[in-house]
Design a protein around this nucleic acid. Sequence first.
DNA 1: CGCCTATTTGATCTGATTCAAACAATGTGG
DNA 2: CCACATTGTTTGAATCAGATCAAATAGGCG
Lengths: 250, 250
Amino acid sequence: MADALDFDFSSDRNPLFRRLSVSTLLSREESQAISALPVHVKNYKTGQDLAREGDKPTQSCLILEGLACRSKAVENGRRQIFSFHIPGDIPDLQSLYIDYMDHDLVTLTASRVAFIPHASLRELMLNHPRLIGALWRETLIDAAIFREWMVGMGQRSGIARIAHLLCEMIVRLRAIGLMEGLSIRLSITQEQIGDAIGLSPVHVSRVFKELRAKGLIRTDGRTLTIRNWEGLVETGEFDPDYLHLRTAPI
Amino acid sequence: MADALDFDFSSDRNPLFRRLSVSTLLSREESQAISALPVHVKNYKTGQDLAREGDKPTQSCLILEGLACRSKAVENGRRQIFSFHIPGDIPDLQSLYIDYMDHDLVTLTASRVAFIPHASLRELMLNHPRLIGALWRETLIDAAIFREWMVGMGQRSGIARIAHLLCEMIVRLRAIGLMEGLSIRLSITQEQIGDAIGLSPVHVSRVFKELRAKGLIRTDGRTLTIRNWEGLVETGEFDPDYLHLRTAPI
DNA sequence: CGCCTATTTGATCTGATTCAAACAATGTGG
DNA sequence: CCACATTGTTTGAATCAGATCAAATAGGCG
């Protein structure tokens, strides 16, 4: 973006416009209506709550910069992470039609987030019915990703699950221009990866070692570099269709 | 229903009306519009496909009788079941805004299913905007259930997962009047339970033995009887909020 | 009845957890 | 800028939950 401190919400640079454009060809009027949405941008540090279990949000948020996750704490001090959210994602769009949050939404890095009142989104959809489908679809893709994670947790081995998650993050980050060459900045700890796919942090570490040993990836701090994409895809039994992104092959 | 061979789609007996009424108080007009939807009822035997991975459905279906599940086959001959669907459920409502099926929808018992064209549903929502939220919400609850299953697969022990699933089925069946006393007819094989929560059929059997030994349930063929609801809830760490059903306590 | 499909039980094996400790990286205040 | 604290990663050893393999029962049903 032009300026790190401010966002350009004008028509075709608007992050929401860009997001919905992936699936839906938007008209000038629709695009302008989106740009006219009243947004409220806020900065967050690592580990801050964007929404908490039990909240009844009156607005949804759009990640502009940074990384967030949705998670739920469980009895024994454990927690399950349901999804990681990168710029362009609208992680709590569901709150538009589900009264209260049944999970938390937390930043994982310093982040910049735009909030859009539910009332404005509802009005937008009433005036531009095609946007109903475009937004609804976002929540459906969300569910499709959940299903894919369920397949992993239910049926795949540890190494396949991690390889799959890495493939997913690579494809998604690449789609929004956040891959540099063959590297992504994966701002997630191994413990968080474990919370997401149901493995202990210790085992995540061992699996990473194995992925490195097999020559599939290289890690340098939090930077992840692909060494063998085909191999990674095969190991993770990864098929990007469920992301509904329609990107070029790597 | 009055007649086993036919369904009453008139206003307040209409299964879709009843379903949406759980969350939304519907007006007379809305109710009539729902009743006026062109539906096409069809009977199925056990194990038939209602939709297949790769399909591009032009209608959504509503389960009237019987039981269905959504599942996805994986490489090694395994499969993951994502959800079980009981009468009143609209298991493929997502196909309204997601072009192709990324999983299968299959009957698990003889079933009776009503199909509603997507075009009619879209028109219904355009004429009655409040129904947008009512229907969208159904897909969001769907995702909420996925999240809860993810918690189970990622964080809970085998016995907790099965207890949780049993609690879920009990609460859902009870909500539609399919619990008799403290018993439900659970028309699911132990193997299918295993496919749903990521356990081998052998282990499912052992866990059932344990649940019986603990005096939590009784099984008689496919009939499941609650012996200790509190205990079952505690074992499964079950909190029905995620179902968004608002039913009386058992 | 006899076939086919579920469930149960036993024995063995293994992927992943847990506990523990060392090590590396990152951040913080003096 | 260094010393120190904190957080994340790695490695080893012991253990365990659940998988796998194999075979015996038990139910449904044409």
